[in-house]
């Protein structure tokens, strides 16, 4: 799983999520089947279940939205524990929750089994414009650095007794953001000059070309194919 070519995995995850999204929401069994499929792959990839579930937390804001849906949606109402809930709203909440969670779970699985750099190579292999991939790679390469610079400024502020407590302190934080921008931009200029002096002409040579054999494609196609089967079954048995 970890060794599969990144572009195969990207295509597989995209197809899987597309299948999930186009499943009718009434087919509750289908979503259970998707979850089982994903869990099987997680098991196969030996990703610890705990980390996998832990990273699903990113979805929380939209869970809050989904919880609100039954209260604000239109349509016939059902009584439940003394609350008047909209029936289509309940379906809508289920729809958003199920599909959103499966999508996030699939993406987390992809990110957990693929290196950052491999992912970028995969994107390039999938014919994303090379410039875009380069920008993304620069962003990832320097992202930690810039975030660290921000952290150092925070430490510097804190060690001088500053604590942001409310709107009145926005000015200070905004000045930090401004300083951060100047530092990042100037670093970009320096990086560019350093690259120029090493013979950069606008493209970065690809050293490790990733290719996929037919067998690898076939192995990655198992998950989306199974998902497609579940999706079709969901439509037929509705």
């Amino acid at each position: 799983m970890h060794a599969l070519p990144p572009h195969c995995k990207l295509v597989a995850v995209l197809c899987f999520v597309l299948a999930v999204v186009s499943t009718p929401r009434e087919a509750v069994g289908a979503f259970a089947a998707y979850a089982l499929l994903l869990a099987a792959v997680v098991r196969l990839a030996r990703v610890p279940f705990r980390t996998w579930l832990g990273r699903l937390v990113i979805e929380v804001p939209f869970v809050a939205f989904a919880v609100l849906l039954p209260f604000v949606a239109e349509g016939p109402r059902v009584e439940w524990l003394g609350l008047s809930l909209s029936e289509p709203g309940l379906w809508g909440a289920w729809n958003v929750l199920a599909k959103g969670t499966l999508g996030v779970a699939a993406s987390v699985l992809l990110a957990a089994t693929t290196e950052l750099r491999a992912l970028l190579l995969g994107l390039q292999r999938l014919r994303l414009p090379p410039q875009l991939v380069q920008i993304a790679s620069f962003m990832l390469r320097y992202g930690d650095l810039i975030t660290d610079e921000m952290r150092r400024m925070r430490v510097a502020r804190a060690s001088r007794g500053f604590e942001a407590r409310g709107v009145r302190h926005w000015g200070v934080l905004a000045k930090s953001a401004g300083a951060l921008f100047i530092r990042s931009y100037e670093r970009g200029e320096r990086v560019h000059l350093a690259m120029l002096s090493r013979g950069y002409t606008g493209t970065v040579p690809v050293i490790d070309e990733v290719t996929a054999t037919r067998a690898q494609w076939a192995r990655t196609a198992v998950l989306p194919a199974a998902a497609l089967a579940v999706c079709l079954a969901g439509w037929l048995l509705r």
Binding site: Q131, Q134, I135, A136, S137, F138, M139, L140, R141, Y142, G143, L145, I146, T147, E149, M150, A177, L180, F181, S184, Y185, R187, G188, E189, V191, H192, M195, G202, V204
Partner: peptide, 15 residues
């Protein structure tokens, strides 16, 4: 383009 836009993207990401 690539180094500068990349660094600005990193800035947006950090901010």
């Amino acid at each position: 383009t690539a180094p500068l836009a990349g660094l600005v993207a990193a800035f947006v990401f950090a901010v």
